[in-house]
């Protein structure tokens, strides 16, 4: 009996320690127990407090971290780090990194610029042979080509579709309404596209939409097949939320969201990283990263890696995810 009690205490103690903030070092940065790699970015970036964005591009065989911030001269630039945190690309004037996507050839597109999926080398400065799509726009790689997705006047437009050589293979462009249900059937408008994140392993993309009318964030999971059907006009006039799993979150419009295989990770204002299941909408996990310190975060679509950047020290970390 005494042995059981001792065992119980031994098992309970870690839970108590883990549950109580008193037993955490308040100066310890988040994920300090999960660091895999780190490097300083002093030589690349200047003051990062003015705003920095991070996202992870994954083409199924390689993934790269994109960091958008200001350099020492105050110029905005985008830098791609490979999985060893080596700089593979460093260019100014690439704005829409949240909508960067993987094309049908497993290469990466940022704005109108095409980069190699192998080493992030520059392939083409103006990838669209025809007129570029209106931005912000994301791309969803399908078997038939890369379907461009964007939101205009609260209507999700799928198309045009680009072939392997980035020629427009089909000019068709179909409209699918974005249904706000189940939060509120009205209003139907107010949607803006915030990000498109692609999970190459599952061949699905997560479209992050902000509805300013009801102050809700929508995350809609579009499969390659659905994107192709939408582009072909198969769902014209219908609501995309009737066709695809989606999640409606009460969040600040600037709260970073990451579509991962583990779920949708919302970086809440409280400092918590909350994971929601896109099917059920339930919160399945959370991690209190604290509010002290200035950090930017990004999760890889495969849900295995988290990157964080200490904006004060300009130090970049890569670590295994906490779930």
């Amino acid at each position: 009996m005494a042995t059981m009690k001792t065992l119980g205490v031994v098992l309970l103690l870690p839970l108590l320690l883990g549950a109580c903030d008193l037993f955490y070092d308040p100066a310890a940065p988040p994920f300090d127990d999960r660091i895999a790699l780190m490097r300083t970015v002093d030589d690349i970036f200047g003051d990062l407090h003015g705003g920095v964005e991070m996202t992870v591009l994954d083409n199924g065989s390689r993934h790269f971290l994109l960091v958008h911030g200001r350099d020492r001269h105050g110029e905005e630039r985008t830098v791609a780090f490979d999985s060893r945190l080596r700089v593979r690309m460093n260019r100014p004037h690439l704005w829409e990194i949240r909508n960067a996507y993987v094309d049908v050839n497993r290469n990466f597109v940022i704005d109108q610029t095409l980069f190699s999926g192998g080493d992030f080398s520059l392939l083409d400065d103006d990838v669209y042979s025809g007129a570029p799509p209106g931005f912000p726009a994301g791309g969803i790689a399908t078997a038939a080509g890369t379907v461009i997705a964007r939101v205009e006047n609260s209507v999700l437009r799928a198309g045009p579709r680009y072939a392997d050589d980035w020629s427009v293979s089909d000019n068709n462009e179909a409209d699918t309404n974005v249904h706000p249900d189940p939060v509120d059937p009205n209003p139907l408008d107010g949607f803006e596209m915030r990000a498109a994140q692609h999970d190459s392993g599952r061949n699905r993309s997560g479209l992050v939409l902000w509805n300013s009318a009801i102050s809700r964030m929508f995350v809609i999971e579009i499969s390659a097949q659905l994107a192709e059907e939408m582009q072909a006009g198969g769902h014209a006039g219908s609501y995309v939320t009737d066709e695809a799993p989606h999640l409606v979150l009460s969040a600040d419009q600037h709260s970073p969201l990451f579509y991962t295989r583990r779920g949708v990770v919302l970086l809440h204002d409280s400092g918590e990283h909350r994971v929601y299941d896109i099917g059920s909408g339930r919160r399945t996990a959370s991690y209190d990263a604290g509010r002290s310190g200035d950090f930017a975060f990004a999760y890889s679509p495969d849900g295995k890696w988290v990157y964080w950047l200490d904006l004060s020290r300009r130090t970049l970390y890569k670590g295994r995810t906490w779930w």
Partner: peptide, 19 residues
């Protein structure tokens, strides 16, 4: 305790309380 930006550290900059 106040941690600044000096050094090669990684602890969160700012003032922290310990007991």
């Amino acid at each position: 305790v106040y941690y600044g930006e000096a050094g090669t550290g990684y602890l969160v900059r700012g003032t922290h309380e310990y007991v």
